[in-house]
């Protein structure tokens, strides 16, 4: 799907809970596309990632003039660079960014594929390989932090969920280097804990946390203890929910 979107130059938004692998996916795709489609090895980095935050301004993305010995020098922002090079531009957690920033990407994200660089009075047309990718976590569903529809409807959305248990087992084994049966147990734990999502747990345990737990176990920390630190305490401050998850942990892992 992503490949087709890339070929057709349709911008993509990746939706999914935290730690389910959105960033990893984009990284992979950039590597994959780089190898299979593009021949832009000479053009350098095919992926530019921007972590969005509250104070991210338009010039942070587009670029700014810097003073240099009474002279000024123009520095391209990450978005401009991506537009020029035709790279994947990945705006992580885009809802965090200021609203005026999100508007900036509108002309890039539709048929125009243009980036106005106000300060230089330029209108950059995106190079061929350019694609805008946003990530967005519907978990924080506050009306304050929701994508505007005008932004939303410029992208196709790929939903990310947590992987199936077998896949997750494989991921944990590979990423953490723990034994396969430990990884299976961790994946099982993930499954069980995600069943509790409606009860004070805003989000289920992420694959990332499970991988962390696996890493701890791989370095000989007792599994129950590892899960306590990497899963139970990391997930919630609600004592009751903590206690319940702990019971699940002690059921799955032997002493």
């Amino acid at each position: 799907m992503f490949e087709t979107a890339y070929e057709q130059k349709v911008p993509v938004v990746l939706k999914g809970p935290t730690g389910c692998g959105k960033t990893r996916f984009v990284e992979y795709m950039s590597w994959h596309l780089h190898r299979h489609i593009g021949n832009r090895e000479e053009e350098g980095v095919p992926l530019i990632t921007v972590a969005c935050h509250e104070d991210l301004t338009a010039s942070d993305l587009v670029g700014r003039y810097l003073l240099e010995d009474d002279q000024t020098r123009w520095i391209d922002g990450p978005l401009t660079r991506a537009v020029k090079f035709g790279a994947l531009c990945y705006l992580d957690e885009v809802v965090e960014a200021r609203k005026d920033t999100t508007v900036l990407i509108h002309p890039l994200a539709d048929y125009r594929r243009l980036l106005p660089v106000e300060k230089r009075g330029e209108l950059l047309e995106a190079a061929d390989g350019f694609l805008l990718v946003l990530s967005y976590n519907p978990g924080y569903q506050s009306a304050l932090k929701d994508l505007k529809h005008s932004t939303r409807q410029r992208f196709i959305a790929i939903e990310f969920g947590y992987p199936e248990r077998d896949q997750e087992t494989e991921i944990i084994t590979k990423e953490s280097g723990c034994a396969a049966d430990t990884a299976a147990a961790l994946a099982k734990l993930g499954d069980k804990v995600r069943n509790l999502r409606e009860h004070g747990l805003e989000e289920g345990v992420s694959t990332r946390l499970l991988v962390y737990a696996g890493k701890l176990i791989a370095r000989d920390i007792p599994p129950r203890r590892a899960c306590e630190t990497a899963v139970v305490w990391a997930l919630t401050d609600d004592l009751e929910v903590q206690r319940s998850i702990e019971e699940v942990v002690t059921s799955i892992f032997e002493d």
Binding site: D191, N195, L196, H199, E240, S244, E247, V248, S251
Partner: peptide, 13 residues
Amino acid sequence: GSVLRLYAEALSG
């Protein structure tokens, strides 16, 4: 009770 309930819910889904 409430701990067991969440526990059961986690297990059974």
